[in-house]
């Protein structure tokens, strides 16, 4: 149906094409006069120091209104407080050795005279506690194990 409608409109417009050509010829005569009129206006604007085709007053007003509304939107966005997000407290275990505890063996400040924290008193390295001999419980070999 759409194709038939397009076909019918095409026939109608083709039948109206001679009338359209007549109207175009009339508008072309107007276009010649309009060309010289706009050309004279352009020359006047040039000698007045304005742009050749200055924007219309209505366009300037519309531009100001749009710009003001955009600036107001931006101000509203800036005025909104930043949402308070979750605060993660990162525990830093390497700021120093808690009192009563032996220094971490890998702490570079041990024995380093240029360290801003100074040279802690030399403490002999403490050997790790011995692993007690304990019986390891046997793992029961259940059915369906990896031995299959």
């Amino acid at each position: 149906m759409k194709i038939l409608k397009e076909f019918a409109l095409g026939i109608l417009w083709a039948a109206l094409t001679p009338l359209l050509l007549v109207v175009i010829a009339v508008v072309a005569v107007f276009a010649i006069g309009n060309f010289f009129y706009e050309f004279v206006l352009m020359v006047i604007h040039f000698f007045q120091g304005k742009k050749l085709f200055p924007p219309f007053e209505e366009d300037i007003k519309a531009y100001k209104i749009l710009k003001r509304s955009i600036e107001e939107e931006e101000k509203k966005e800036e005025a909104k407080p930043a949402p308070a997000g979750p605060v993660y407290v990162q525990a830093n275990y390497f700021t120093g050795t808690p009192p009563g505890m032996p220094p971490f063996p890998g702490d570079p400040r041990i024995g380093n005279p240029s360290s801003p924290y100074g040279v802690p008193p030399s403490v002999p390295p403490v050997p790790p506690p011995p692993i007690e001999n304990r019986e390891v419980p046997a793992i029961e070999n259940k059915e369906g194990g990896d031995d299959q």
């Binding site: 397009e6 076909f7 409109l9 095409g10 026939i11 109608l12 417009w13 083709a14 039948a15 109206l16 094409t17 359209l20 209505e58 366009d59 007003k61 519309a62 531009y63 749009l66």
Partner: peptide, 27 residues
């Protein structure tokens, strides 16, 4: 062929008329 010419003329004028919306939108 005549219908195709008419369709071409009509589509061209519809395309050209959209410039009027662009001209008048902001105001």
């Amino acid at each position: 062929l005549i219908a195709l010419i008419g369709v071409a003329v009509r589509k061209t004028m519809i395309y050209q008329s959209k410039r009027a919306d662009t001209m008048m939108h902001d105001a």
